[in-house]
């Protein structure tokens, strides 16, 4: 009895400690613009913004892929829709950020609902292929839209304007992206053990059993798919403001593949995994790019090695280490089915 009490007190202490560390990290992340200004390293802030924005998209993907077990190889579709949701109106002379936001939410929501309803008629491998096919189709749609840049993409003269501030301002963009990411991560963490997350995760393990328990699994899955689409759309909107450019390549399969990579490297189905994965993958890319011209080959080789190793990511590896450290039995995270 006393032992249990001791452990729970210990656990409470650990939780407070974890909370304090997290808070410190968030504060540090929020102060990054100050450091980069002081150190005169604007590229660091740009890089950090890229990490945060793509981590947001990966967090959205994690909702359907990590919890729902639905491997979407077409998540870049919504990133591209978000980017064009900024680029096209500003090309036509509308700079109002609220208008951009509304447009992005509408476009990604509607396209998400439509493609989701069709794609979710299938599951497993069929779903992978159909999500990929949809994204590629929209890729060709944007390539074909010669009035809006076509193959060359569309540069954005002025970012989304919210009252006096514009997202073209790097510091404002970074802080906005960070705030949205934190909200998304928290929401994911809360959703994971809420009814919604439980139904999704249950369906990933055994769809029929969830259905026989009386849950309309498809409705939950479509809802998750649309939420993920809209959050990715917002990430796309931020991404367009960071690059001040929207191109069809944002919708292409390598982008979707990168998002999948981030989720898997960080830890499939864990709340914080996508952020860790985004940091690791983008840092790795940056380092590879500086060391070798043919970095894509080596990146591909690493991805292949990761797939063959069968690990579900950094968190999986860390759990294994910790378990060895504490001489506790191994409890490896199972990949979602």
């Amino acid at each position: 009895m006393s032992k249990i009490f001791y452990r729970s007190k210990n656990a409470a202490f650990a939780q407070t400690k974890l909370g304090a560390i997290l808070l410190l990290l968030i504060l540090l992340a929020a102060c990054l613009p100050l450091f980069t200004q002081w150190g005169d390293a604007p590229f660091v802030l740009r890089f950090a913004s890229r990490v945060v924005i793509l981590a947001l998209a990966a967090t959205a993907l994690n909702l359907i892929m990590g919890f729902g077990g639905l491997v979407s190889f077409g998540q870049a579709l919504f990133l591209g829709l978000g980017a064009y949701g900024v680029a096209i109106p500003s090309h036509l002379g509308f700079e109002n950020g609220f208008l951009h936001l509304a447009l992005v939410m509408l476009a990604s929501g509607v396209v998400g609902a439509m493609t989701g309803m069709i794609a979710l008629r299938t599951s497993g491998l069929g779903f992978i292929m159909i999500s990929l096919a949809f994204a590629e189709m929209f890729y060709y749609l944007f390539v074909g839209m010669k009035n809006f840049g076509g193959d060359d993409g569309l540069s954005i003269l002025a970012g989304s304007r919210f009252f006096a501030a514009t997202l073209a301002n790097q510091t404002f963009l970074y802080l906005m992206a960070l705030a949205i990411l934190l909200v998304a991560l928290l929401a994911c963490h809360l959703l994971k053990n809420a009814r919604f997350g439980m139904v999704l995760r249950g369906a990933a393990m055994n769809k029929m059993r969830m259905a026989s328990l009386g849950y309309d699994v498809r409705r939950y899955q479509i809802l998750a798919y649309v939420i993920a689409a809209m959050v990715t759309g917002i990430a796309g909107m931020l991404y367009a403001n960071l690059m001040l450019y929207a191109a069809p390549s944002y919708l292409a399969w390598p982008m979707s593949g990168n998002l999948i990579m981030m989720v898997v490297i960080g830890g499939l189905g864990t709340s914080i995994g996508p952020l860790l994965g985004a940091i690791l993958l983008l840092l790795g890319e940056e380092i590879l790019q500086r060391t070798t011209e043919h970095w894509m080959f080596w990146l591909g080789a690493m991805i292949l090695a990761l797939a063959l190793s069968g690990k579900t990511g950094l968190i999986d590896v860390m759990t294994a280490w910790r378990a060895i450290w504490q001489k506790a039995p191994l409890r490896l995270g199972q990949p979602g089915k």
Partner: peptide, 14 residues
């Protein structure tokens, strides 16, 4: 199948 996708994604890049 996620690992099939990852492995073939790596192969495409390579």
């Amino acid at each position: 199948p996620l690992y099939h996708v990852l492995a073939s994604f790596g192969l495409i890049l390579m």
